[in-house]
Design a protein around this nucleic acid. Structure first.
Lengths: 132, 132
DNA sequence: GTCGGAGCTGGTGTGGGCTCCACGTCAACG
DNA sequence: CGTTGACGTGGAGCCCACACCAGCTCCGAC
């Protein structure tokens, strides 16, 4: 998880929903939801109307998954995706967005650490009063 | 936050809802919700039916807050409180519960760290391609 | 007394992020 | 061909942890 995707060097760059589910671990419903929410570039369909995802999409999903798992709201991930689509002149804004999120993640880590110490102290206390 | 409460040494050990709100930072609705959900020992009422919280309750709320903030579901916190009420013979079970939660917290921290590194890499990348 | 404000109960609403459902279509298999 | 199974769409439902509300009671200050 949270790995930069190795791009497929060769040819076949279209994936069925099932393949994407397999690859990303996201459910198909989530995939559709993400598409509708603008986390993905438009996904085009084959003759029968079925989605054909590209390597691009997999990359976007990998970013999205990382941001989501670290607690960024879907709307913000969508905003980020939108910035990417908008072109290079949004790079500063993207950096700002990521940095701010990074700060929140940092704070969350710090908070969790404190909570963990508290838990450890509690456990230690119980150990000390445990009947022999 | 996440601090073991200093017990009031002296006498007055009854708190109004407002005082508890003040002390814990929880909303009164949350307080009621926690009471109903069994995170607290029964709270008794004064003649007029108003809650009188004790130091006990404040202590429980401090634990509850820590567990909640580190992501433990309300139901599990209630389970823990129930074990405490059940007496000393549940200490092993409490330790087990806390340890397991501790492991989850640990995992969450690790995951967040990875995500943060990912974000940092992304930022660094953007820095490197920024137009001069 | 009367008024403001804190509390009470019981019930309903909210928001985010999925998740499930009904129903329809199409391609492929045997 | 018929059936199966993957997908499609639109919309409803769900879960959690509160937040909010109506309508009432009580206490203390003025």
């Amino acid at each position: 998880m949270c790995q930069a995707r190795r791009m497929t060097a060769g040819g076949m760059t279209a994936y069925t929903p099932a393949q994407v589910v397999e690859e990303t671990g996201l459910s198909i419903d989530t995939l559709r939801y993400y598409e509708k929410s603008g986390l993905l570039d438009p996904v085009d369909r084959d003759a029968a109307g079925r989605r054909r995802f590209t390597d691009q999409h997999l990359e976007q999903l990998s970013v999205a998954r990382c941001l989501r798992e670290s607690g960024m709201p879907v709307a913000d991930v969508a905003r980020y995706a939108e910035l990417v689509r908008a072109g290079d002149h949004t790079i500063d804004e993207r950096v700002e967005l990521l940095r701010e999120h990074g700060r929140r993640v940092q704070a969350q880590i710090a908070s969790l650490r404190q909570q963990q110490r508290y838990i450890e102290r509690k456990v230690a206390y119980y150990q000390s009063v445990r009947r022999p």
